[in-house]
Write a protein that binds this DNA or RNA. Structure first.
Length: 373
DNA sequence: AAACCGGGGTT
DNA sequence: AACCCAGGTTT
């Protein structure tokens, strides 16, 4: 394997460096397992600077396991609005409810128990066990794989599950007695601050002189990572529907399905366009009216183009055209009979803050409001 | 193993 | 414009 000297040097120097350079982050104020848990879930695929304000608001709104367990899901989703990967929020609350009911609100400190919770995978279980309870478990994230692949010159594809398993064994082996929490955080801190994906700051690195990749001039080439597939393009026509009469000043929004992309979030009504090219605005508005009529049973009256926008998810690219609409008279009279589809609602600007929207729709609504002056 | 699941910062 | 981020779940 690797020499004991190289491993021991790494762990010792890293801990010394961490003691001097660790950032003062909100979730490092104490070892409350619930707070550690919240922070680790928020930090999945999300940068520290993005998470900080969300973390503060979240623990203020849901200060305890009990508070989060008893909160309505819509409120939790709203608190997560803009962070992305919303299944994290839904799984987190589901898991917290289980901790509340099955473990009396105490976050488990056993690997098997904590790993069985929804949304808690190998990384998060290791992070909570080591940081909150100082248990000698590895917490291998993208930072850790980058650091280890460079220091030990590991040329395996880090996208492969087998590589992560190997990294976990190595990372666990590197933990000095009684320092799991600090050591795991030190490893991630080094990856975030020094051993960065591109242009690593090797000259300030505490373990540079023993870094195998540096020795070989390979630090920029590691880690090896198979290229991801580009997102597939989709064209969408969006209806910004303004109310009239009793609904004056309100917008018509709808809730997304229970499962799948952006599950249970609210959005502006829209359709996916099948063909490969955009049509004229006139044709687009006809298609929008007819398709919404067929699928939802409400009649739109599109009145004009508002804006173009786009949004990239991890695996889908949305190219969007937004049209101003109202409901035509037939729909208005039917709505008075209570025939608006159940997942649709009229809401005022003030009520907007109660509903969780994907960021792409937040942007559209803000742009419209600013255009109004 | 591959696909699904957001959104934004860095270079 | 490409790359990546304190990943997990489902197929």
């Amino acid at each position: 394997m690797y020499s004991e000297e190289q491993k021991q040097y790494f762990s010792e120097q890293l801990l010394i460096w961490y003691g001097r350079h660790k950032r003062d982050l909100p979730w490092r104020q104490n070892k409350n397992p619930y707070y550690i848990w919240i922070s680790e879930v928020m930090l999945q695929q999300t940068r520290v600077d993005t998470v900080i304000p969300y973390f503060h608001r979240f623990i203020e709104q849901f200060p305890t396991v009990k508070a989060l367990a008893e909160a309505p899901e819509e409120q939790v989703l709203k608190a997560w609005e803009g962070l992305g990967y919303y299944s994290r929020a839904r799984n987190l609350q589901s898991a917290v409810r289980e901790v509340h009911e099955r473990y009396g609100g105490q976050v488990p400190n056993e690997k098997a128990e904590i790993s069985s919770l929804k949304g808690v995978g190998p990384y998060t279980s290791g992070a909570i066990l080591s940081i909150a309870y100082n248990k000698p478990e590895p917490a291998v994230d993208g930072n850790v794989m980058r650091v280890l692949s460079r220091y030990f010159l590991i040329e395996e594809d880090i996208m492969k599950p087998s590589t992560r398993v190997r990294m976990e064994a190595l990372a666990k082996d590197l933990i000095p007695e009684g320092t799991a929490g600090d050591f795991n955080q030190a490893l991630m801190e080094l990856g975030a601050m020094v051993c960065t994906p591109r242009s690593p700051h090797c000259l300030t690195c505490p373990v540079m002189v023993q870094c195998a990749a540096r020795e070989e001039g390979m630090e920029e080439a590691l880690p090896i990572k198979k290229k991801a597939k580009p997102p597939r393009p989709e064209r969408r026509l969006v209806a910004l529907i303004k109310g009239e009469g009793v609904n004056d000043g309100k917008w018509l929004i709808r809730q997304r399905p229970q499962e799948g992309l952006l599950a249970r979030m609210w959005e502006l009504p829209h359709i996916e366009l099948g063909h490969s090219e955009w049509q004229t605005d006139e044709v687009n508005m006809d298609v929008l009216r007819e398709t919404i009529s067929l699928s939802e049973g409400i009649r739109l009256a599109p009145s004009g183009w508002l804006m173009d926008t786009d949004h990239t998810f991890s695996h889908i690219y949305w190219d969007m055209k937004v049209y101003q609409c109202s409901l035509d008279q037939a729909s208005l009279s039917r709505e008075k009979e209570g025939l608006l589809p159940f997942h649709y609602r009229w809401i005022s600007q003030e009520e907007l803050v109660q509903f969780a929207f994907p960021n792409v729709f937040v942007r559209i609504m803000k742009a419209w409001q600013e255009a109004q002056g």
